[in-house]
Simulated assay, not measured.
Amino acid sequence: MTLLAVLLVTAGCSTRRVSGPAPVEDRGVVRTGVEPPAVVVMPGSENAGKPGYYTVKAGDTLFRIALDNGQNWRDIQTWNNLANANSIEIGQVLRVLPPVSATAASTPPPVVAPTGPATSPVASSGVTARPLTEAAPPTPIPAAPPAQPPAAAGGDEIGFIWPAQGSVITPFDEANNKGVSIAGKVGDPVLAAADGRVVYAGAGLRGYGNLIILKHNNTYLTAYAHNQALLVREDQAVRQGQKIAEMGSSDTDRVKLHFEVRRLGKPVDPMGHLPKR
């Protein structure tokens, strides 16, 4: 009887059901406990790769994108409904050519000669300003040598003048120097190479120091870098030969003017657009 009782108890234990969930069956799915990252759709991604659009890369700023595409940074901000010009993200796709309705508005209006001196300096972070009264009246336009005048303007082509009187110390090199460097002394005048409108005046582009960018038409921009002082402000109309800055050495190793000519945003050799001397 004792042996029979033991056998019955053992059999009962072997058939007892265990409460709780069944064990997880491995069907080849590895569970790490980490949820997959959410897919982030960047603004404007549907336009990536289309003509007239640009995908933001690491290190980009709106100012640099505007310069490289021959546009006013404020226009790009407007076309893309950007609340803050400093808030762009890697992978974001920006319109860099004007919408059809904005094409006419993007053309700089005719330059009007100033009727009186301005009274306040340029307000731009990191820029040493001078009162604009120093720049009025505009510096007389230097006369080109009679035998070699600037090329006659045709269509959007422009007859530029030299922006400074010094010699060229660094020639154009599309890979390493997107303009020419012109020697000079601290405070030497920097002149507008042609009529235009100021689309940038500040120190927000790394490597350029205190910089002025002029838009002359829908084809050409010129840039004037490393200045000691800026004498014009954004959206101001300027005349060819007008003093717009004073030469300096901001963000560079010596006093010089770095001068660029950009055709549709692409740097071109200024020596092909300036009168020989």
Rank of each mutant, 00 (worst) to 15 (best):
A147P: 12
V127E: 04
E134F: 07
P171E: 01
L132M: 14
T139I: 12
T10Q: 07
K256W: 12
V41M: 06
K243R: 15
A151W: 09
S106P: 09
G28H: 08
V6H: 06
P149S: 06
A83Y: 07
A58E: 13
P51K: 11
L67W: 01
P131Q: 01
D235R: 14
A38L: 04
S45H: 11
S249A: 15
I141T: 15
E46L: 04
S101D: 15
T78F: 13
N227A: 13
E25A: 00
S120T: 14
S87N: 08
P114S: 06
E25L: 00
A229C: 05
S19V: 10
A144P: 05
I65M: 10
V24R: 12
D26G: 00
K215G: 06
S181H: 02
T115H: 11
V96C: 08
I90Y: 06
V96F: 10
A123E: 08
L82S: 10
L4N: 02
D188N: 10
G126V: 10
S120L: 04
V268K: 02
G248C: 06
N80R: 13
S167Q: 15
T32A: 00
Q77P: 08
A123H: 07
G59Q: 05
V18F: 03
G204L: 14
L221D: 10
S45A: 12
P189E: 09
P142Q: 10
P189R: 04
N227L: 08
Y220N: 11
P99V: 13
S19I: 09
A194Q: 07
T252D: 15
V29I: 14
V111P: 15
Y220S: 08
Y53W: 12
V40A: 02
P51C: 13
L8A: 09
V56A: 06
D156F: 05
P145S: 09
P36R: 03
R27N: 03
G166K: 00
P146T: 14
A144M: 09
L132K: 15
P142C: 11
V255T: 15
T2Q: 06
I182G: 02
F63R: 05
N72C: 06
A118K: 13
S106C: 10
A153Q: 13
G248K: 12
S181W: 02
V56E: 04
P117G: 01
D68P: 03
M42S: 03
T107C: 10
N218I: 12
S181Y: 01
V111N: 14
A223W: 02
R17T: 00
I182Q: 05
P43K: 04
P150E: 12
